[in-house]
Design a protein around this nucleic acid. Structure first.
Length: 154
DNA sequence: GCCAACGTTGGC
DNA sequence: GCCAACGTTGGC
């Protein structure tokens, strides 16, 4: 059982948006490392911290759960879509995704500034300068510490 | 809006 | 297979 952190721009898709849908296909990831995490490593039922990037302020907004096995990202085949990949074919897809479902929304966002100032959480990849990866694994101690600070029990 | 960090592309 | 150029991410 692994834990994850997934980034989303709240202007595009926020934790509130996740509350409203039953399951959300995590489409549009076009980074091989992030794809491999979804395709190879994620298992149904695993939990992910839902991080608001490009936000004011940025930080962790809640928790999501892996709700499906990996399958080809349909947006890679949409010719006029933003995420079209001409090198991908139905027979040989390049991009895979999983669905996420909502688990919890924090009463208050846990801001990146607070995480960086925390002795434990400052070790997290998302706190390191220059980490642009949109999906990262999260250690148990970090995951649990975030839930503690947010006052959330799952 | 700036810019540092980093991934990807493509010429050679 | 190297690496310069370019594009993107994302905090500030």
């Amino acid at each position: 059982m692994l834990n994850w952190l997934i980034k989303s721009e709240p202007d595009v898709f926020s934790i509130r948006d996740l509350e409203k849908v039953e399951q959300e296909p995590w489409s549009g990831v076009r980074n091989y490392q992030a794809r491999n995490f979804m395709w190879r490593d994620m298992k149904v039922g695993e939990l992910a911290l839902f991080y608001h990037s490009n936000a004011n302020p940025p930080g962790i907004a809640g928790v999501a759960r892996v709700a499906s096995a990996a399958y080809p990202d349909p947006t890679q085949f949409e010719k006029n879509g933003e995420y079209y990949d001409p090198k991908a074919t139905e027979e040989k897809p390049r991009w895979y995704l999983v669905d996420f479902e909502h688990v919890a929304t924090f009463d208050e966002l846990l801001p990146l500034t607070v995480m960086k100032a925390d002795d434990v959480l400052s070790e997290m990849l998302v706190c390191q300068k220059g980490t642009r990866l949109s999906i990262t694994p999260v250690e148990d101690k970090h995951f649990n510490h975030v839930l503690d600070l947010a006052g959330v029990t799952i």
